[in-house]
Nucleic acid binder design. Structure first.
Lengths: 254, 254
DNA sequence: ACCTGAACACCGTTCAAGT
DNA sequence: ACCTGAACACCGTTCAAGT
């Protein structure tokens, strides 16, 4: 209730300030302008990200959306990076695997990873934040847990499961960051296509031969293919050899 | 000559300014303070990145290292993002695959990818730049070309080669960005370990069971394993099905 | 053609002061 | 306990003016 209200407030304020004067007549008639909270700050920040992308996101911008100064946020937020971490976790709320036994584990695994990909794509630039801040909030942990469970169900029960999950998540996050709906990346892709188009056969014969294949397919198609590749690889890979292959490690001694 | 000199100059100036007064007596005795150039700006920026990390890198900082104002750089550089792109390509200069036939293609492929990984790790935060700016300078093209050639040598001659190279490069770039030597990521890893340590078995049973495996191994060991996984996967994968599977695509008609 | 100072419109973060 | 204005030390980029 408060959350949605807060977000809408920020929406209104974002487009200049015509109503503002009419609404702020009395300081008594409303509860001290929706009493700032951690959740309100995070949801407002996500709303700004959705509307203006990563370039428009700043503590000052969030604060002005909330009709206050940036300093006020520091009661609820450690710093900008901390806010980013909480934004990521909040955006991952709905990301879940299909119910157990409704489909083959492999299908459910891919479904969860693609849901994660779509969540990152829902907000412009969220994936960039996810690349610079390793997410480890409750929603991230839940997703890790599900992924581990699905690989275990698929018979990958050793260190491969842990490293495999790491690989899968890293790939999805990175591909979202690279092929995200960000304007800068849109330009980036154009730049790449131009570079490929001007690559001469004498200099870069293989790039020349594959110049179309290199940029073919949309994001989801490529992600689909890459996930198949990695799952196949994880299934057929050897478990990595470590100093001590199972749980007992030096860290548990010290 | 000028490059190295420029870099050293910036090095000196970085640690306060004791010699400065003695050196800048005459404006005639030196060639208008090493005449600014694209290459000089890029190498100076890389030197700053190496010394102060991504947080210390800015156009103003580069300019002050070069004893001028930020505005002066715009003759040689489009903007900050353009500078980033050139820095990445410059840092990739020495990244090469071992000579043909000196080893199995698979060994040479991994060697090239690990050389790329090490190049990204040489400068703190360069990988982060590489994630936000798709590199497509001459050195990047050369690396792409080598990778494609090696996969082709390994019998992967269709669209898999193009998408496979994309996957491999994306992974290496992303893992360098995530496990980079950046202080922020150092903190990040600590945060993750703490989050894993406090994950309760009742909430996240699989994460709990694999909490050690999830953070075991150093960067290179994990990269090694992940590359094996992906190469295996690429070799055994089906070629992705597209509207038109080979070179001829709609883009060549228009 | 190249360089520059000053300005513009921003940042994150801190801190003394208010309530 | 919570909020705030003002300040600090920065940003990228533009532009008129100089040489």
């Amino acid at each position: 209730m408060f959350l949605t209200n807060g977000v809408r407030c920020s929406n209104v304020r974002a487009m200049k300030e015509p109503i503002a004067r009419k609404k702020v007549i009395s300081r008594r008639s409303r509860p001290a302008k929706s009493p700032l909270s951690h959740a309100l700050i995070v949801s407002t920040a996500l709303a700004i990200l959705a509307r203006e992308g990563v370039a428009g996101l700043s503590l000052r911008r969030v604060a002005s959306s909330l009709d206050t100064g940036a300093a006020s946020l520091y009661v609820y937020v450690d710093n900008l990076e901390g806010l980013h971490a909480h934004m990521i976790d909040a955006a991952l709320t709905g990301v879940r695997a299909p119910k157990s036994k409704t489909a083959h584990w492999r299908k459910r695994l891919k479904s969860l990873l693609l849901a994660y990909l779509r969540a990152l794509h829902r907000y412009h630039g969220l994936a960039q934040l996810a690349m610079s801040t390793i997410a480890c909030g409750p929603n991230s942990l839940r997703i890790w847990d599900s992924l581990l469970g699905l690989l275990i169900e698929g018979g990958v029960g050793d260190t491969r499961a842990a490293w495999g999950v790491d690989l899968l998540i890293l790939y999805v996050t990175a591909t979202a960051a690279e092929h995200g709906p960000e304007p800068s990346n849109g330009q980036g892709l154009e730049r790449v296509k131009r570079a490929l188009a001007t690559a001469r056969e004498s200099d870069y014969s293989h790039v020349f031969a594959f110049r179309d294949a290199l940029t073919s397919g949309d994001g989801e198609a490529r992600a689909n293919w890459a996930l198949e590749v990695m799952i196949d690889g994880i299934l057929s890979a050897k478990a990595p050899r470590l100093r001590s292959p199972n749980v007992t490690s030096s860290t548990r001694m010290s």
